[in-house]
Amino acid sequence: MFDLEQAILAWRKQMTDAGVKAPVPLEELESHLRDAVEERVRQGLGEAEAFNVASGQMGRAGEIKSEFDKAAKLEMPLGQKWGDRYGVSFFASLIVFYGIWMTRLVMQYALFSGKERTLAFAALAVTELAVFAAWHLVPVLFPIIHNKRVESVVVSLCVVADAVWYVFFAWYVLPRFQFTPGGVRVMTLWAMIPILVAPTFFSVLRRSERAGVQT
């Protein structure tokens, strides 16, 4: 007995195996396939035959993937091409450099007590882990934003939240407590975590969105 949902799942697997990205543009292609199947069933074909005709008319997965690759190369503005090619490496290098540079400072800074030094290293480790986790988890945990305006609002909120947190920390948190010189530095390292994670969050969000769609 033919099962349309199973057939569509198998078709999706063929597409993803060929490198067509999910959810975008695969969702749109699937929507088209379902329209084509429905139309042919309305014309009197059985579901199995309708699916075979519609999926054949859709074209081979490898060809579709290759056309999307060509289109992506043509559509991408130069700045974006550079951003995609070098931006990720640059940002990753920056985070690694930040970790190494701060580790050296913490090692050299004589005013740290043993406990403060441990807390400073913990802050650096959490920073690196949080950026790494955000890079991998944002595309999985957050839905792709199809609407460009909504995406802009989310990105702007990230930037504003970052700025507000920075001002709040520098103007309200630090002056209110009597930190030792080492303590101030430890607190600053912890406060840097959201400031460094936020750009990762929205850059991954943008890349996920571009990998697929925009509105």
């Binding site: 292609l29 088209h32 859709m58 056309e67 289109a71 992506a72 043509l74 559509e75 769609v213």
Partner: peptide, 15 residues
């Protein structure tokens, strides 16, 4: 092929 329309649409959207 139906599937070939979508890369064109995406390219036009990018432009």
């Amino acid at each position: 092929s139906d599937g070939m329309l979508y890369p064109v649409l995406h390219r036009m959207e990018g432009k």
